[in-house]
Design a protein around this nucleic acid. Structure first.
Length: 204
DNA sequence: TCATTAATCGAAG
DNA sequence: CTTCGATTAATGA
């Protein structure tokens, strides 16, 4: 399984185009739903959550991303507004580059531009798979879909040693299930030998 | 030690 | 499946 390194531009390159490093505190909001997309963001360290809320006020997490990954970039080629919020789960170091500078960077660096295409394609691909799994009425399938998705970001090739660093609540918000349902089905999957649980840590 | 947050469980709808 | 209520474990001030 190939690791998704979506995207990882050399920090030096970003700086030379006017990128600036910024440290966000835990729970700090990077941008909100409805804001204009004006920056390209790349995480150096930390964890960022992309979420939105449904009409009942329940949180739905679109994704949780970590080091060396970018976000907010899919809208840089359009004149649209964000459809989700970006919030730091922990203190994070993030480089942000103004939209126009980013586009200029791509123009001058065909190689990076190509990577960008590959990156966006890969996201579309996994989004499609996620969508299928998440629309399943079977909770085990939803969980499996999410776990496969998360694992695709992971490097190792070993069986059942990929640690899922999410709380049960986050998994619930990611799959649209309730915490209890997540817990119960995770146990069911453990019995089926699909994953292991050690000290509450999920190994997939 | 007190308070808060996360994980679990059992029972009912 | 979800909701409710209650217990227990883990973490931090």
């Amino acid at each position: 399984m190939k690791t998704i390194s979506c995207m990882n531009i050399e920090p030096e390159t970003l700086y030379s185009y006017g990128g600036e490093k910024k440290t966000y505190k835990q729970k700090e909001i990077i941008y909100r739903e409805g804001d204009h997309a004006t920056y390209y963001y790349q995480i150096l360290q930390g964890k960022v959550k992309l979420n939105s809320y449904n009409e009942e006020g329940k949180e739905f997490i679109q994704n949780i991303i970590g080091g060396n990954q970018s976000f907010g970039d899919s809208l840089l080629f359009l004149e649209k507004f964000y459809v989700m919020n970006a919030i730091c789960l922990v203190e994070s170091e993030i480089i942000r580059l103004p939209k126009n500078n980013f586009l200029e960077l791509l123009e001058n660096n065909p190689k990076i531009s190509l990577e960008m295409n590959a990156c966006l394609s890969q996201r579309l691909y996994f989004k499609a798979i996620m969508l299928q799994n998440m629309s399943s009425p079977n909770p085990v399938l939803r969980l499996e879909g999410l776990l496969n998705y998360l694992k695709s970001y992971h490097d190792g090739d070993c069986e059942q040693c990929f640690p899922v660093e999410l709380t049960r609540q986050q998994i619930a918000n990611l799959t649209g299930l309730r915490v209890e349902t997540v817990i119960r089905n995770l146990k069911k999957m453990e019995k089926l030998g699909k994953l292991k649980i050690q000290d509450r840590k999920i190994l997939y």
